[in-house]
Design a protein around this nucleic acid. Structure first.
Lengths: 254, 254
DNA sequence: ATTGACCTTCACGTAACGTAAAGGTGTAGC
DNA sequence: GCTACACCTTTACGTTACGTGAAGGTCAAT
């Protein structure tokens, strides 16, 4: 039985591009090339492809698969054992990441202690210590103490008060914007107040204000669908409305 | 305080290339460019970089970090929550992979039931069933039953007897090669017997023999360090010796 | 002869940089 | 003033495993 790329692809469930790529990297060459330059595969190649896909499903890299299928002496457990070690390593790192992400979420959400400053500080302290134990040593060795300390200091400095103040501003901006949206007039008083609040809230994070930056950010609310989705969540059109309001706001201010 | 790329890089523990790259993708622009075209960063940029690195350590993509640092409204838990979901998904897939790799290793090694054909077959059956339950449905839907059945059939056809026969051949070849190596003569009787055994063993996996293929594989034993390491494990120089023996073997046979 | 389904070879895009290469800048020592 | 030498710049290829066109040739049927 002979196969062209597409036939073999359908049989094995891979794209024609994949077969051409496997040819290119020398992992699966066609049995022959016909007079028109077409790749022709035979039974031998079908078997080899099955073997390749078997290892691919186990997450083995094509580079390693190449060794395995080229020389059957690598067929055995050795390659897979090494691969297993890599996977276990990967999982370990992944678990660490997940643990840190979850701690950070808890910290942001304040689920646990946002209302209790003492505990809050203690929690951040704990997050820092955990990280310190897990990979702080490596990083300290690599980059020196100052970097790590500075990074930790930064985390500590984002105090609960700051966070709450910013949150209040955002809440006020959001409700003002919703009110303004009902008027339909981005140049109106309410909309301009929303733009002003938006600026104030930005100032919490930007250390310097510029009309251009503000206007550019506003434009992005419309251009980037991820931002749009955020602002349009309650009321479609809000993102565009906010952009218009801010553009008016920034062009009036000098 | 003002910094050039290298100074900022040392402070934060990243390469200058990274800073230029962050400039390029617009995630961290220098405060200004001096008259010589040098990038000059200020305190604001230092802070922003710290924030970037914080999220980077949590495994967040630069694309997402860009949103977070560009618009503080993304600073919160939302981005991280989505990120956590992705990480959990990843871990699930990783666990599946590890489980399959471990089963395959056990199968290859025969640790469990290699000496008991019934159990062996049962084990392979179990591996197949497990895979079937985990993602067989998807694959069957995607590619049709024939592909999956064919793949499974292939696994079942690799019987214990075949495996053992090949293993015996490999053992014989290895010991013959070791003996031959001591003589130092790749054209000698022992070395040529090793080459012949090597061919026989290859025939177990290749459905077709060619002198060129055999000679090419032998050359790779020397050219590719990973193969070399395998054959030189017991005795350095063995890979080169085997190549020489095979080259002599293949050029004498017609 | 034309259509439509195949096939071919480029060649760019993906993520986050590492690693040269080729060339300009700044400053210290002679 | 000249020369080292450490710094800076841009350009561009390599990494993994292909996806996705683009431009153009082939094959069988209408």
């Amino acid at each position: 039985m002979e196969y062209t790329v597409q036939k073999l692809g359908r049989l094995a469930g891979v794209s024609t591009r994949t077969l051409r790529f496997y040819d290119e990297i020398g992992i699966l060459k066609p049995a022959r090339i016909n007079s028109s330059g077409y790749r022709i595969y035979g039974q031998k190649e079908v078997d080899r492809l099955q073997q390749i896909l078997f290892y691919r499903e186990l997450g083995v890299s094509l580079d390693r698969i190449k060794q395995i299928v080229t020389d059957p002496s690598f067929n055995g457990a050795d390659a897979l054992k090494e691969h297993r070690e890599q996977l276990l390593d990967k999982r370990k790192q992944l678990d660490l990441l997940i643990s840190n992400v979850e701690k950070t979420i808890a910290l942001y959400e304040g689920r646990i202690t946002m209302t209790d400053k003492e505990k809050f500080e203690g929690f951040k302290q704990k997050l820092m210590e955990d990280n310190e134990n897990k990979y702080g040593k490596e990083i300290r060795e690599k980059y020196g103490d100052d970097v790590v300390d500075k990074s930790n200091e930064k985390l500590m400095n984002m105090t609960q008060e700051q966070h709450e103040a910013a949150a209040r501003l955002v809440a006020e901006m959001t409700s003002t914007l919703a009110e303004a949206f009902k008027t339909g007039d981005p140049a109106g008083e309410l909309a301009q107040k929303a733009a002003e609040l938006h600026k104030q809230w930005l100032m919490f994070y930007w250390s310097e204000y510029s009309k251009e930056g503000h206007a550019g950010l506003a434009q992005m609310y419309v251009d980037d669908e991820r931002f749009t989705a955020h602002y349009d969540a309650e009321q479609p059109g809000t993102a565009a409305f906010l952009r218009d309001a801010i553009h008016i706001y920034t062009s009036m201010k000098k």
